[in-house]
Protein backbone atom coordinates (compact mmCIF):
# COMPACT_ATOMS: atom_id res chain seq x y z
CA UNK A 1 0.00 0.00 0.00
CA UNK A 2 2.86 2.32 0.71
CA UNK A 3 4.31 1.89 -2.73
CA UNK A 4 1.74 4.29 -4.13
CA UNK A 5 3.70 6.98 -5.85
CA UNK A 6 2.96 10.13 -3.97
CA UNK A 7 3.27 13.48 -5.64
CA UNK A 8 3.46 12.02 -9.11
CA UNK A 9 5.39 14.17 -11.53
CA UNK A 10 3.46 16.44 -13.84
CA UNK A 11 1.71 14.84 -16.78
CA UNK A 12 1.09 11.70 -14.77
CA UNK A 13 -2.52 12.53 -14.04
CA UNK A 14 -3.90 11.02 -17.24
CA UNK A 15 -6.53 8.30 -16.95
CA UNK A 16 -4.06 5.51 -17.58
CA UNK A 17 -1.57 6.90 -15.08
CA UNK A 18 -4.29 7.24 -12.49
CA UNK A 19 -5.36 3.67 -13.08
CA UNK A 20 -1.84 2.35 -12.86
CA UNK A 21 -1.16 4.25 -9.64
CA UNK A 22 -4.15 2.73 -7.91
CA UNK A 23 -3.84 -0.04 -5.40
CA UNK A 24 -4.82 -3.63 -6.10
CA UNK A 25 -8.31 -3.45 -4.63
CA UNK A 26 -9.11 -0.25 -6.43
CA UNK A 27 -7.78 -1.75 -9.66
CA UNK A 28 -9.97 -4.80 -9.24
CA UNK A 29 -12.98 -2.62 -8.56
CA UNK A 30 -12.30 -0.57 -11.64
CA UNK A 31 -11.83 -3.60 -13.85
CA UNK A 32 -14.99 -5.18 -12.50
CA UNK A 33 -16.94 -2.03 -13.15
CA UNK A 34 -15.64 -1.78 -16.68
CA UNK A 35 -16.62 -5.39 -17.32
CA UNK A 36 -20.06 -4.72 -15.86
CA UNK A 37 -20.38 -1.78 -18.16
CA UNK A 38 -19.41 -3.92 -21.15
CA UNK A 39 -21.92 -6.59 -20.22
CA UNK A 40 -24.61 -3.98 -19.58
CA UNK A 41 -24.19 -2.52 -23.00
CA UNK A 42 -24.10 -5.96 -24.55
CA UNK A 43 -27.44 -6.75 -22.92
CA UNK A 44 -28.90 -3.43 -23.91
CA UNK A 45 -27.93 -3.79 -27.54
CA UNK A 46 -29.08 -7.39 -27.62
CA UNK A 47 -32.43 -6.60 -26.05
CA UNK A 48 -33.04 -3.68 -28.31
CA UNK A 49 -32.46 -5.87 -31.34
CA UNK A 50 -34.50 -8.76 -29.98
CA UNK A 51 -37.45 -6.65 -28.95
CA UNK A 52 -37.52 -4.89 -32.26
CA UNK A 53 -37.58 -8.25 -33.98
CA UNK A 54 -40.36 -9.52 -31.74
CA UNK A 55 -42.43 -6.44 -32.33
CA UNK A 56 -42.08 -6.75 -36.07
CA UNK A 57 -42.97 -10.44 -35.94
CA UNK A 58 -46.08 -9.61 -33.93
CA UNK A 59 -47.10 -6.99 -36.46
CA UNK A 60 -46.68 -9.46 -39.29
CA UNK A 61 -48.58 -12.22 -37.45
CA UNK A 62 -51.45 -9.94 -36.55
CA UNK A 63 -51.70 -8.88 -40.18
CA UNK A 64 -51.89 -12.50 -41.27
CA UNK A 65 -54.18 -13.51 -38.44
CA UNK A 66 -56.77 -10.80 -39.12
CA UNK A 67 -56.55 -11.20 -42.90
CA UNK A 68 -59.51 -13.58 -42.84
CA UNK A 69 -57.38 -16.65 -43.44
CA UNK A 70 -58.81 -19.81 -41.90
CA UNK A 71 -57.17 -20.85 -38.65
CA UNK A 72 -56.55 -24.35 -39.96
CA UNK A 73 -54.51 -23.03 -42.83
CA UNK A 74 -52.60 -20.74 -40.62
CA UNK A 75 -51.87 -23.58 -38.23
CA UNK A 76 -50.65 -25.77 -41.01
CA UNK A 77 -48.46 -23.00 -42.42
CA UNK A 78 -46.90 -22.29 -39.03
CA UNK A 79 -46.48 -25.93 -38.01
CA UNK A 80 -43.33 -26.33 -40.04
CA UNK A 81 -41.74 -23.11 -38.81
CA UNK A 82 -40.19 -22.30 -35.52
CA UNK A 83 -42.56 -19.80 -34.00
CA UNK A 84 -42.07 -17.06 -31.45
CA UNK A 85 -44.20 -14.40 -29.86
CA UNK A 86 -47.82 -14.41 -30.92
CA UNK A 87 -47.20 -17.27 -33.26
CA UNK A 88 -46.06 -19.43 -30.39
CA UNK A 89 -49.14 -18.51 -28.36
CA UNK A 90 -51.38 -19.25 -31.32
CA UNK A 91 -49.66 -22.58 -31.90
CA UNK A 92 -49.97 -23.59 -28.26
CA UNK A 93 -53.68 -22.89 -28.32
CA UNK A 94 -54.23 -24.63 -31.63
CA UNK A 95 -52.23 -27.65 -30.56
CA UNK A 96 -54.36 -28.02 -27.48
CA UNK A 97 -57.53 -27.57 -29.54
CA UNK A 98 -56.45 -30.18 -32.07
CA UNK A 99 -55.46 -32.69 -29.42
CA UNK A 100 -58.74 -32.29 -27.61
CA UNK A 101 -60.78 -32.82 -30.76
CA UNK A 102 -58.67 -35.74 -31.94
CA UNK A 103 -59.46 -37.54 -28.70
CA UNK A 104 -63.04 -36.39 -28.69
CA UNK A 105 -63.24 -34.19 -25.69
CA UNK A 106 -66.61 -34.03 -24.10
CA UNK A 107 -66.74 -30.85 -22.13
CA UNK A 108 -66.24 -27.57 -23.98
CA UNK A 109 -65.69 -25.79 -20.64
CA UNK A 110 -62.69 -27.90 -19.68
CA UNK A 111 -61.32 -27.45 -23.19
CA UNK A 112 -61.67 -23.70 -22.85
CA UNK A 113 -59.73 -23.63 -19.59
CA UNK A 114 -57.07 -25.94 -20.99
CA UNK A 115 -56.58 -23.69 -23.98
CA UNK A 116 -56.34 -20.62 -21.78
CA UNK A 117 -53.81 -22.28 -19.60
CA UNK A 118 -51.73 -23.40 -22.58
CA UNK A 119 -51.76 -19.85 -23.89
CA UNK A 120 -50.74 -18.41 -20.49
CA UNK A 121 -47.87 -20.84 -20.41
CA UNK A 122 -46.79 -19.88 -23.88
CA UNK A 123 -46.93 -16.18 -22.95
CA UNK A 124 -44.88 -16.81 -19.83
CA UNK A 125 -42.31 -18.72 -21.82
CA UNK A 126 -42.07 -16.00 -24.41
CA UNK A 127 -41.80 -13.22 -21.84
CA UNK A 128 -39.19 -15.12 -19.97
CA UNK A 129 -36.94 -14.89 -22.98
CA UNK A 130 -37.73 -11.22 -23.44
CA UNK A 131 -37.18 -10.24 -19.83
CA UNK A 132 -34.14 -12.39 -19.20
CA UNK A 133 -30.98 -10.48 -18.17
CA UNK A 134 -32.94 -7.31 -17.47
CA UNK A 135 -32.30 -8.05 -13.81
CA UNK A 136 -28.58 -7.64 -14.42
CA UNK A 137 -29.19 -4.12 -15.70
CA UNK A 138 -31.12 -3.33 -12.55
CA UNK A 139 -28.35 -4.70 -10.39
CA UNK A 140 -25.71 -2.69 -12.19
CA UNK A 141 -27.84 0.43 -12.04
CA UNK A 142 -28.24 0.22 -8.32
CA UNK A 143 -25.02 -1.51 -7.32
CA UNK A 144 -22.33 0.04 -9.50
CA UNK A 145 -22.24 3.38 -7.68
CA UNK A 146 -21.74 1.59 -4.41
CA UNK A 147 -19.00 -0.57 -5.83
CA UNK A 148 -17.31 2.52 -7.23
CA UNK A 149 -17.71 4.25 -3.89
CA UNK A 150 -16.15 1.27 -2.21
CA UNK A 151 -13.15 1.58 -4.49
CA UNK A 152 -12.94 5.29 -3.75
CA UNK A 153 -13.08 4.81 -0.02
CA UNK A 154 -10.39 2.16 -0.15
CA UNK A 155 -8.25 4.36 -2.39
CA UNK A 156 -8.61 7.41 -0.18
CA UNK A 157 -7.92 5.32 2.86
CA UNK A 158 -4.69 4.00 1.47
CA UNK A 159 -3.63 7.38 0.17
CA UNK A 160 -4.25 8.91 3.58
CA UNK A 161 -2.18 6.20 5.15
CA UNK A 162 0.58 7.02 2.72
CA UNK A 163 0.22 10.73 3.47
CA UNK A 164 0.49 10.04 7.16
CA UNK A 165 3.68 8.18 6.40
CA UNK A 166 5.09 11.03 4.34
CA UNK A 167 4.39 13.51 7.17
CA UNK A 168 3.38 16.23 4.79
CA UNK A 169 0.00 17.84 4.26
CA UNK A 170 0.94 19.49 1.02
CA UNK A 171 -1.92 19.35 -1.47
CA UNK A 172 0.48 17.94 -4.05
CA UNK A 173 0.83 14.93 -1.81
CA UNK A 174 -2.87 14.59 -1.05
CA UNK A 175 -4.27 15.23 -4.51
CA UNK A 176 -3.03 12.29 -6.62
CA UNK A 177 -4.31 9.64 -4.27
CA UNK A 178 -7.72 11.22 -4.05
CA UNK A 179 -7.96 11.78 -7.80
CA UNK A 180 -7.06 8.17 -8.39
CA UNK A 181 -9.60 7.02 -5.85
CA UNK A 182 -12.33 9.16 -7.32
CA UNK A 183 -11.75 7.50 -10.68
CA UNK A 184 -13.37 4.38 -9.25
CA UNK A 185 -16.56 6.29 -8.44
CA UNK A 186 -16.51 7.83 -11.87
CA UNK A 187 -16.36 4.44 -13.55
CA UNK A 188 -19.10 3.14 -11.28
CA UNK A 189 -21.38 5.99 -12.28
CA UNK A 190 -20.40 5.51 -15.89
CA UNK A 191 -21.66 1.95 -15.72
CA UNK A 192 -24.69 2.65 -13.56
CA UNK A 193 -26.29 5.54 -15.44
CA UNK A 194 -26.80 3.76 -18.79
CA UNK A 195 -27.81 0.60 -16.98
CA UNK A 196 -30.54 2.35 -15.03
CA UNK A 197 -31.89 4.20 -18.04
CA UNK A 198 -31.80 1.08 -20.22
CA UNK A 199 -33.47 -1.02 -17.55
CA UNK A 200 -36.34 1.41 -17.24
CA UNK A 201 -36.83 1.55 -20.97
CA UNK A 202 -36.45 -2.17 -21.63
CA UNK A 203 -38.68 -3.25 -18.77
CA UNK A 204 -41.31 -0.83 -20.04
CA UNK A 205 -41.02 -2.28 -23.50
CA UNK A 206 -41.23 -5.82 -22.14
CA UNK A 207 -44.38 -5.08 -20.19
CA UNK A 208 -45.88 -3.56 -23.32
CA UNK A 209 -45.03 -6.70 -25.29
CA UNK A 210 -46.51 -8.89 -22.60
CA UNK A 211 -49.68 -6.82 -22.55
CA UNK A 212 -49.94 -7.16 -26.29
CA UNK A 213 -49.49 -10.93 -26.07
CA UNK A 214 -52.10 -11.19 -23.37
CA UNK A 215 -54.47 -9.10 -25.40
CA UNK A 216 -54.00 -11.39 -28.36
CA UNK A 217 -54.46 -14.44 -26.15
CA UNK A 218 -57.72 -13.04 -24.80
CA UNK A 219 -59.00 -12.29 -28.27
CA UNK A 220 -57.99 -15.71 -29.55
CA UNK A 221 -59.57 -17.35 -26.55
CA UNK A 222 -62.79 -15.47 -27.29
CA UNK A 223 -62.71 -16.67 -30.88
CA UNK A 224 -62.12 -20.26 -29.80
CA UNK A 225 -64.89 -20.17 -27.20
CA UNK A 226 -67.31 -18.83 -29.82
CA UNK A 227 -66.38 -21.76 -32.06
CA UNK A 228 -66.90 -24.19 -29.21
CA UNK A 229 -70.33 -22.77 -28.55
CA UNK A 230 -71.24 -23.05 -32.18
CA UNK A 231 -70.11 -26.69 -32.20
CA UNK A 232 -71.99 -27.57 -29.07
CA UNK A 233 -75.08 -25.90 -30.54
CA UNK A 234 -74.71 -28.00 -33.68
CA UNK A 235 -74.29 -31.14 -31.63
CA UNK A 236 -77.33 -30.31 -29.60
CA UNK A 237 -79.29 -29.64 -32.77
Amino acid sequence: MEQIALAAPEGQYSLWALFMQAGLIVKLVMIGLVLASVWTWAIVIDKMIAMGRIRKAMDRFEEVFWSGQSLEELYRALAEKKTSGMGAVFMAAMREWKKSFERGAKSPHSLQTRIDRAMDLAIAREMEGVESRLGFLASVGSGAPFIGLFGTVIGIMTSFQAIAGSKSTNLAVVAPGIAEALLATAIGLLAAIPATIAYNKLSGDASKLSARLEGFADEFSAILSRQLDERSAKQAA
Binding site: L15, V38, K47
Partner: peptide, 25 residues
Protein backbone atom coordinates in the same frame (compact mmCIF):
# COMPACT_ATOMS: atom_id res chain seq x y z
CA UNK B 1 -26.33 -12.13 -27.71
CA UNK B 2 -23.12 -12.31 -29.67
CA UNK B 3 -23.84 -9.20 -31.66
CA UNK B 4 -24.66 -7.29 -28.51
CA UNK B 5 -21.54 -8.39 -26.71
CA UNK B 6 -19.17 -7.73 -29.57
CA UNK B 7 -20.65 -4.34 -30.31
CA UNK B 8 -20.49 -3.46 -26.63
CA UNK B 9 -16.87 -4.51 -26.36
CA UNK B 10 -15.98 -2.56 -29.47
CA UNK B 11 -17.80 0.47 -28.18
CA UNK B 12 -16.05 0.35 -24.81
CA UNK B 13 -12.69 -0.13 -26.40
CA UNK B 14 -13.35 2.87 -28.59
CA UNK B 15 -14.47 5.03 -25.70
CA UNK B 16 -11.54 4.05 -23.47
CA UNK B 17 -9.08 4.47 -26.30
CA UNK B 18 -10.50 7.89 -27.06
CA UNK B 19 -10.33 8.77 -23.38
CA UNK B 20 -6.72 7.74 -23.09
CA UNK B 21 -5.75 9.75 -26.11
CA UNK B 22 -7.74 12.91 -25.67
CA UNK B 23 -8.44 13.05 -21.94
CA UNK B 24 -4.84 13.38 -20.93
CA UNK B 25 -3.79 15.11 -17.78
Amino acid sequence: MKTGLTSSVVMHAAVIGFGLVSLSA
